[in-house]
Design a protein around this nucleic acid. Sequence first.
RNA 1: GGGCCUAUAGCUCAGUUGGUUAGAGCGCACCCCUGAUAAGGGUGAGGUCACCGGUUCAAAUCCAGUUAGGCCCA
Length: 857
Amino acid sequence: MNLKDTLNLPDKDFTIPMKAGLTNLEPAIQQRWEDINVYAEIQKSRESAEPFVLHDGPPYTNGPIHLGTAMNKILKDFVVKSQTLAGHRAPYVPGYDNHGLPIELAVMKKFEKKKISPSILELRKACREHAEEFIGVQTEQFERLGVFGLWDKPYTSMGFKYEAEIVRVFKRLIEGGYIYRGLRPVLWSPTAQTALADTEIVYEDHTSRSIFVRFDLKDDPNGIFEGLENAGTIIWTTTPWTIPANLAVAVHPEFTYDIIKVDGRHLLLVRELVETVAAKCGFADYTVVKSVKGSEIEKTVFAHPVYGRDSMALLADYVTTEDGTGVVHTAPGHGREDFMTGQRYGLPVLCPVNERGILTKDAGEFDGIHYKKCDEVVVNRLQELGALLHVEDFQHTYPHAERDGKPVIFRATEQWFIGIDQPFHLNKEITLREKMLTQIDEIQENKGWVPESGYKRIRAMIEGRPDWCISRQRPWGVGIPILYGKESSEPVLDPVAIEAIAKMIEEQGSDGWYDLDPNEILPADYAHPETGETEFRKETDVFDVWFDSACTNLCVLEGNVEPEWKDRWPSDLFLEGSDQHRGWFNVSLIVGTAARGEAPYKEVLTHGMVLDGKGRKMSKRFGNVIDPTKVCEQQGADILRCWAASVDYENDMPCSDELIKTSGEGYRRIRNTLRFLLSNLYDYDPSAEPELLAIDRWIMERSDILVSQAMKAYDRYEFQKVWSGLHNFCVNDVSAVYADAIKDRMYCDGQDWDSRRSAQAACHHVLNHLVKLVAPILVHTAEEVYERIPGISQLTSVHMESIQAKTCTREWRSCSKLAPSCLPSLKAGGRRTGSKTHRMSKQTCRFQWSRRQRSNH
RNA sequence: GGGCCUAUAGCUCAGUUGGUUAGAGCGCACCCCUGAUAAGGGUGAGGUCACCGGUUCAAAUCCAGUUAGGCCCA
């Protein structure tokens, strides 16, 4: 007789295999999820439960996902699954962001290869196809990560109904009084006669004419030139042709400016550059007569050297002491910084240059001159006027169009804006900005910005952000639904007209805007509400893609696009990378507040960026890129998810092959613990009600504590704490102590003995909890284990389970009491008890110590 | 250049409002087991808490500065 046959050894076929084989296992499990439509099942089972709505920020569909996208989705899935586990109804409607420049450029590249120049509609069709392709690719990749959601009906910003809804949001903002038209400088190619995006620009060396020009004092409200005759300042610029557009001069508020006396004049410039400028301008003999701080110069008025009009001194912190004079020529129509500064001081935007780069009648005597020639003309004129102090060639980098290599200019053009300082539509006493700031503060007082630094960050950004320019001169986007009277060029801001456009888009997509004649879109006999015209032309600009994504909360959660998406507004949580303070959090706040008077979220969670093992940015150039899909194929999604749970996502997250490997070892440890617990339950009898042994009670209570702590951590999105808690429990409590302690009983005692049934009850209890706790992270492994656990009422999937956090008080007490009492049984039962005892007593001490700590407070 | 953030063992992270000898897991070294076995257990070695000042009886912790890195902006 083989003695071994008399033992109750673990059943290797009953439990999960030691070797996970996740690369095969995961797809099989995912197939089953698809077959039973697990996401729908979960939602159905939670219909009446308290909701928790995580609103998905849409990834951009111009390529496959990268690790950052994967990390973001995994974190969202941790939230959704753990909220489900806590008993909530946690829907997840994923989304995709489709319009915009990167896709357009990718598609154009393909056309260029084939030497085709597509029409707008051809280009848009190709863009749509490109986006469509990557919606498919990304969906597959996200599902492969084990992320649950409404994958067969995600929201897509290029969906016809979604596009129509964007137009309707725009209509709501017009009704709220937030939309206006104004001038703003954009990068402009005079050769192509078109606006360009930053990505279409290359910076190349260029030799410009740099000039030093005297502006005489016109008005001195601060008295900084008091008693000094022939006062003025010296400005500097490398674009003389923009002198006709000069409306101001900028100084740095912190710099010290000297007033020097030279040739009977008193001229102001920054102290650091006095010597250099004097040398250049040939000031043989000068003396510093006075010094002022930059901030004191504000609002001093100088005279434009050609036209004599006001050119006021403004403060700007981009002024440097590297070149020039510390007094910067400012033309709001010809530079981004100039524009921003001008906005702050309420200056008009003057742009006396047409689309071909020729100066207009607004430039007075320079009318009709091409901007390139104008440099010379302006220089000569200033010379004539005696205002030119010095001219020289200046080498610097200057923006050129990537396409034709020709230099570009900044040129102010008509754009559409959302006015941040417009009166808030529900309370005209305050502005939209003020309302948004209140919202930010209220969120902070309630659920909050996590981590807390996000609060400061978003607040500073909303405090300082300029009006939002929502128009783009591009082909791939939702056309701005504005018609202009053909004669008057007056825009139609009538909701009726815009609704007609939205209706059309709902059926034909935003291509219809390009395809159809205005009168085919508008109701019959529609007349311009202001001018009565019946002939119209269409706006050619499209919405900034950020406007598309700013609308997600309305488009999705209001259910206007798809009734199935309708859910609570504002949502409970937005969860994105910290770069979205400037991006999605910011624009969603604007649109949410302007449309519904509130922020669209109650809580905002941000994570850092994924970096390589050395803390460097991942980049193809460095060859340090980790492809999440490859990790799934080679190691398994559960391994990648272990990594995601093991890092501190509030900061930047390091990742490398080495770290993925380490995660794999952590995974194995938990897997083997689950495997061991399960392997002893092959003959588990749920009807047996054995008297529980002390050590069995102990491990059960330890697992209850774990449940309590892990659920609390899940609720606070502290996934790393969950992970280390689970891991430490498996290593210290189960492997090091409990597993060894029960082996004798489990294998050698009679199958039905209370002593053995007691251990089984404990293993069952622990496994039952462990598998649920682990499920949001190890989504596949948990499922693999769950379906094998005997003696429980099986749900269709472990992810339908819920678990209540237990209160700790009783357990804390019994733990500290129990541990000493179970030592003798350990000594009697285990073979290698010396070390266990040591561990045990170490832990016991820690419990008692913690308890004392608590009771002292 | 500006705003925000980060820096604790080889790695991933704990370290409450300043208060004993700074902890855990992984990894590593050595040992044990061979009834969780391509598993499991034990023991041990690893730290100038990025650097430099300051406050304090006392600093990983508070303050100023420096360096390195990240996000956003210019």
